[in-house]
């Protein structure tokens, strides 16, 4: 499958902090769901921010479509990569529709700021609302939504960007199991049917093993393990990574590994 992103010896460190990423290399291919796992402070969110172009690598580079990510303008980048925020707290009562519409702003021209949206934008917004089952929320105020609803709306916003690459940072945190699996199933269909590339930072290893294709396990700013989801989850080094001796079972229907606390 075609390559979507390539990381070449990416180094980064936060000014005035020990948090850093070191020598991260790897390839992320089309139609692959990649999970970033690792203990708290391993650098998963930092790596996502770099992949989203929110931070620039100190050394090395991130290539998207054969071209350095930092060479794209904000507008160009927003048509290639979308980062779904965990939560937003808008200052005023924005309508759900307005929030989803923001996924299109990178493609706006002068008049789109004043006039009714062009047909292509309207269609993209409509499809994103449809794909996330949020059409009937569109008229509500964003701040009045429940946790599950607001997460679906944020997914709709990034889907409206119509990017080949989707970055998710703990997309199901604070969601109950029903809403969490609903959201993950939606992402799964994006990966399988639309061949989107998804990079997701996630804590729950069994869920990752169940849904994702590949895993990069991170520790103190480095990728220490990478491979297919089943391989990485069952790797003996996972014990050191989390300082925990997991018990493993096999999922009765999906034949994937499931990890249990000892």
């Amino acid at each position: 499958m075609a390559e979507r992103m390539r990381l070449e010896q990416v180094d980064f460190h936060w000014p005035g902090s020990d948090m850093a990423l070191a020598e991260i290399s790897g390839t992320i291919r089309e139609g692959v769901w990649l999970a970033l796992i690792g203990p708290n402070g391993a650098g998963k969110t930092t790596l996502l921010r770099l992949l989203a172009g929110l931070e620039q690598p100190k050394h090395g580079q991130i290539l998207v479509g054969g071209q350095s990510l930092s060479s794209y303008s904000s507008r160009e980048r927003s048509t290639l990569i979308a980062l779904m925020p965990q939560a937003i707290g808008p200052l005023f009562d924005l309508k759900v529709h307005t929030v989803v519409e923001m996924g299109r702003i990178g493609r706006y021209r002068f008049w789109d700021h004043l006039m009714r949206l062009q047909r292509s934008h309207r269609r993209a917004v409509e499809e994103a609302l449809w794909a996330t089952d949020t059409l009937d929320l569109a008229d509500r105020n964003f701040t009045e939504l429940s946790g599950g609803e607001s997460r679906r709306v944020l997914l709709a916003m990034v889907l409206a960007q119509q990017t080949p690459i989707l970055l998710l940072d703990e997309p199901t945190v604070y969601l109950d199991p029903g809403h969490a699996s609903d959201l993950l199933n939606r992402v799964e269909s994006l990966v399988r049917e639309q061949k989107k590339t998804v990079v997701m930072a996630y804590h729950d290893l069994s869920t990752v093993a169940l849904y994702c294709d590949e895993i990069w396990a991170m520790d103190r700013g480095r990728v220490v393990l990478s491979g297919t989801a089943s391989e990485v989850v069952l790797d003996s080094r996972m014990k050191e990574l989390y300082a925990l001796d997991f018990l493993s079972l096999t999922h009765p229907t999906r034949q994937r590994p499931v990890l249990l606390l000892p």
Binding site: S73, R75, S78, P85, P90, L94, E101, M102, Y108
Partner: peptide
């Protein structure tokens, strides 16, 4: 409309393509 995006937070605005 950039101002609508800024109401969602600077990081979100950046993500959807606002310089």
């Amino acid at each position: 409309k950039t101002m609508n995006a800024l109401l969602l937070g600077e990081d979100v605005a950046h993500g959807v393509g606002v310089p």
